[in-house]
Design a protein around this nucleic acid. Sequence first.
DNA 1: GTAGGGTTAG
Length: 635
Amino acid sequence: MSCLTLQASALTFPAPPYSNTLSNDSQDNASKNISSISLLRKCRTFKEIPPIHANILKNGHQNDPFIVFELLRMCSKTNSINYAFEIFHHIREPNVYLYTVLIDGVVLSGLYLDSIRIYCQMVEDLILPDNYVISSVLKACGFQMELKFGREIHGQATKLGLCSNRSVKLRLIELYGKCREFQDAKRVFGEMPERDVVAATVMISCYSDHGLAEKAVDVFNLVRIKDAVCWTAIIDGLVRNGEMSKALKFFRRMQREGVRPNEVTCVCILSACAQLGALELGKWVHSYLEMHDIDVNHLVGSALITMYSRCGDIDEAERIFNVLRERDVTTYNSLIMGCALNGKSGKAVEMFQGMITKGIRPTNITFIGVLTACSHGGLVDLAFDIFDSMETKHGIEPEIEHCGCMVDLLGRVGHLEDAYKFIWSMKITSDHIIWGSLLSACRIHKHFDIGERVAQVLVDIGDADSATFILLSNFYAAQGKWEAAAQARVKLQDGGVRKEPGCSSIEVENEIHEFLLGDTRHPKREEIYKKLEDLNQMLRLKGYSPDTEVISQDIGDQEKKWALAIHSERLAICYGLISTKPHTTIRVVKNLRVCSDCHSAIKLITEITGRNIVLRDRNRFHHFENGICSCGDYW
DNA sequence: GTAGGGTTAG
């Protein structure tokens, strides 16, 4: 057997320091064994384990494989893998059961390479693998994407006659699926006696992981009796591939077919609601959780907080946070980012400081949240303090996203030269996103000299995407350099990259209605455009005149005014005005940044109609009320 | 007397 391509170097197995007096077979010892085992099985936290372990040592049971098995199992269940290693090192002759339970624990801790090494050690010790240990090590190979070694294990399993085992087959499908070897995954899937719902679920999530949502749906359709987990896998796959409407359709179908969603299903649907800004559906899921007594653990809690905060209801997000039974870093991350997006910078910083005081360790995501908050709130000094503390106090190396927050912040407050220097001083390589963010700030602050330098860098680094060409085009257009602007547009088309069209959506009676620029596809288009015309007249009476500078194409003034008036967010707002009750809040989600002209127009629209309007754009929330926006015209 | 099916925040 040649499985030693990976060295068993990380782990050594010292000789046992204990004397090897095995317990005798007396009735007394047997009952002690059973009581240790049942005690261990009752453990819920790690701190209960050492006293029992001490007792086992005292009674000389440290070499009883059944007791040690239970000890190791409890260590991995209570997330104490180092203690498990310690125990394992002292076992004289570990058998396949003990190796398996250790490998499982190591896999659970995410130490996939270590678990593979332990398996190698086992084979070196001439212990014959069984289907359980093969399944365990295959799981490690899948998560580590260790295809070559995984194939070797597959070969060993075939020689040992273990490949007919269902668990082994499931793990093989998972291994090949995670490694994008779908031919092999399908071959094993086809060998399964029936179209197995669990195997199908594995296939579905692997296809979804690799962006192959259609293939995932094909597999899903093959399954005759679909359970909640299988439904959840396809819904989650669609959500993660950006197919929100399809995901919601599957969710409705799931309920029509009488399959009860579980808490994981709810997390996935809440994530879809958060991305769509579908508050009504999100609320429905929330009440569903309450009605069906589904446990709101920290993941469900985080999903609820994210849903409410991304739908603009930050008060409800805070309320959920406050009543949660368990709060961990994920719940904090969700609310910190929620506060940041909703313009509550102070609250976000307060939460961040609070979690540190409570001893909860922040993650890289926490810093993206709190730095975004600083950026949106213009808190320069505080942002630098926090940014510097990442490495010095928290041992987290800043990534490009964190640097991006800093550049965004310096750009917003008009410190453009500082931002420029900051990018050059970064330890990590800059990208077109960070330079693009600075270019955008240069355009807003009309700092064309720095902008020209930034534009040159962007052209030089040559990894520009469609958004970059649009930024460049808009930058030149803002200076009236129409030819350069047009050239950037030509490059955009030459590169075969298309501009992401501006799209706004609004949820009315549980339906999501989407609008593009000048969209005329909606069944109520006539009423919508009539409303738009009425509003335009009222806007003119209020002294509003369109700021045509924001339109960067070289077209006539009259055309520019029209192009602004039919921006997708205005169409969505008009649909909201005609289809919802007076005084209710209108909530619109836009995929791009709102332009300054629409921003001014919407402020006036809240004055004219007496409605509150909540607009979520690509970067943040704008809560419009009585002619004022929560962003303080600073975004 | 030792043992597991798949799905989860940003």
